[in-house]
Design a protein around this nucleic acid. Structure first.
Lengths: 271, 271
DNA sequence: CGCGATTTTGACGGTCCTCAACTTTTGTGG
DNA sequence: CCACAAAAGTTGAGGACCGTCAAAATCGCG
């Protein structure tokens, strides 16, 4: 969903640098833009993390911002009793630890070997360029989280698994999707345990759902987490009704609805 | 859903909108700031909606931005088969219809009688002031959506209902929380049906959970949707482990974790 | 090869959904 | 103001889905 992958994050729609609750000072902003290249070189360091290492932790003050250079990172929130939810999975180019409040509102944990650029908060605060990228990232995540809410709130385990695979396959992580052989092949970033924490399921359910897809000859798995989609159309049947904004039916055919329109009652879900 | 007929779409000044992402232009921005007050007066109109009326619809092009002056609006996403999810409930001062993509990614529907200020997209795009407010709103929603994801993914029906009531009561909507009489009293913005769509439940489950709380003398309800919290501490026991960032335990006690720290395994949820 | 981490599989049960009928509240028109 | 209809909420019975517990199997890595 929201598949339009823009290579350059800065060309996303306007929501501007005012990503931070700070007084708007356009003149200072211009100066900062000029300094950006310099500042970014000065107060920046590279850090490495191994799988399972924590980059920052929920409710710590956020003193640094990170840019992922290489590897994959998960953002998680943990409830006191140990239940966990993975909010997002980020990769190269993504920014980590955006200062939305005083403290980090999630933990960030390395999934693979990770290299990040560590940027001091002060540098970030002074850089319009970085803040613009942060705003873009925020938007991207925002849209993903919207879809996630719908999934978690309204879709079955089967649908969640299937559409996760579908999206992962489509989002360019797939190795080779040759036109005449429509089988995607890629490596899952998440273990099944993490997948469960991402999709709001248990690891047992994830395993069973994957097995089901294997038995239906929809997917094939080899190695630890290599996955091959044998039957994309079958897969989207399991994923069922994903509403892609771009693919949505009546794009731009109707008006802004200046006229008040009554909305029908909710039909009940039919699983 | 998309069936609604519109009588006369003529009374609305159709504003050709530059719906395209623009590069950040600080100089133009300064000029725009100067013009803000003027522009906001020129291309702005007031609109009214009754309960259940749609303000804009999922996958329509977003040509206007709205500011709620009075009333309550829900943002919803509907799956093709009729399942619905309410993503957010907005009130006075909130902005509606932020252009995150080319099209609206949710529908906006009036819950109560609503008055909104309608702002042309072109005006919005030219106004740094508005965009700054939009960014702030985006952040607020972002944090709420994070909590929502955790709730939907990892918490039981009881917990969701209880913490919804708790948060609504705390968030100032409560009429009178006198210090010596710690009973909150307020009016639910959402019907039970909407509550279900917000919390990822069915209306029957919502009803049963509320009844349960009534039987436990935790809450009392009168009228259609007037709610009184009789036993706040009992309520938070049902809500269980809500981790409020502000109330979180180790605030700033630990470091940014430049030192790699291994994360323990997930403990299984204990309901 | 052996050990820990991860996944698989089975049995069982609880939570919550489904279906359905009924009750209460709200709104409308005579 | 009452009657009636529509909307909203309540309650019960039953069962599906998915979580829980437990144990075996497999993978990966030294």
């Amino acid at each position: 969903m929201t598949t339009s992958l823009r290579s350059n994050p800065t060309d996303l729609p306007p929501i501007p640098s005012a990503c931070l609750p700070r007084p708007l000072d356009a003149v200072a902003a211009i100066r900062d833009v000029a300094n950006d290249r310099f500042s970014m070189r000065s107060a920046v360091g590279i850090r490495r993390y191994e799988p399972r290492q924590m980059i920052f932790e929920q409710s710590q003050p956020c003193r640094h911002i990170f840019e992922i250079i290489e590897g994959t990172v998960k953002l998680t929130i943990a409830l006191p009793d140990g239940r966990r939810q993975i909010l997002a999975v980020l990769g190269p180019g993504d920014l980590l630890g955006l200062p939305l409040g005083q403290q980090h509102n999630t933990s960030a944990i390395a999934i693979s070997d990770v290299r990040v650029k560590q940027i001091a908060r002060s540098v970030f605060d002074a850089s319009l360029l970085l803040q613009s990228r942060a705003a873009a990232q925020l938007q991207k995540l925002f849209l993903k989280m919207q879809d996630m809410i719908v999934s978690l709130g309204r879709r079955s385990a089967t649908e969640r698994i299937a559409s996760y695979i579908l999206e992962t396959a489509k989002s360019g992580n797939s190795d080779a999707a040759t036109p005449n052989q429509p089988t995607w092949s890629f490596t899952l970033a998440l273990s099944q345990t993490d997948l469960a924490d991402h999709l709001g399921l248990t690891l047992e359910t994830v395993s069973r759902e994957l097995t089901k897809l294997k038995n239906h000859k929809i997917i094939r798995m080899s190695g630890r987490n290599h996955l091959e989609v044998l039957d994309p159309s079958g897969l989207s049947e399991f994923a069922d009704n994903v509403s892609h904004p771009q693919t949505a039916p009546n794009c731009g055919t109707t008006n802004e609805a200046p006229e008040p329109v009554f909305v029908g009652r909710r039909r009940r879900a039919a699983r």
